[in-house]
């Protein structure tokens, strides 16, 4: 018998736990790939919702930040911000990752391979 899907808030917590436990990335591309791969793995492991990007608006699955949702960060050419509804995921050229809410509350921060954080 299938088991109940944990709530999105619980899956988001698991995503942050796994992201924190993963090895530090050393570049924007590597960190971006890590965010995408870990979020997809969490959704595959903890839900029965299939990966189906065309249905992202109605299937209840969390999807990784899209590359075309990249925003500049004023005064920080080394940073890229990926925006979603109420969160921004900042990724540095050094592979550091930080997730903030719309109220600028840091919910996750991880250094890049050089030991430096995003801010």
């Amino acid at each position: 018998m299938d088991r109940p899907n944990p709530t999105k808030a619980e899956r988001f917590e698991e995503f942050l736990r796994r992201l924190g436990a993963a090895p530090a990335a050393s570049s924007l591309d590597e960190a971006y790939r890590q965010v995408c791969d870990i979020l997809n793995a969490v959704e595959d492991d903890l839900t029965s919702i299939p990966f189906d990007p065309p249905r992202w608006m109605e299937d209840g699955r969390m999807y990784p930040p899209q590359a075309d949702r990249a925003f500049a960060v004023t005064g920080r050419p080394d940073l890229t911000r990926f925006r979603s509804r109420h969160h921004s995921t900042f990724i540095g050229a050094n592979g550091a990752i930080e997730v903030r809410t719309d109220a600028d509350v840091v919910v996750f921060s991880k250094s890049g391979a050089d030991g430096r954080t995003v801010f």
């Binding site: 709530t7 999105k8 979020l39 699955r61 969390m62 999807y63 979603s84 509804r85 969160h87 997730v99």
Partner: peptide, 16 residues
Amino acid sequence: GVSTPAADNSDYGSGP
């Protein structure tokens, strides 16, 4: 797309 915020981070990675 129009969305009001969810209180518990449950809208990360969600569409409007």
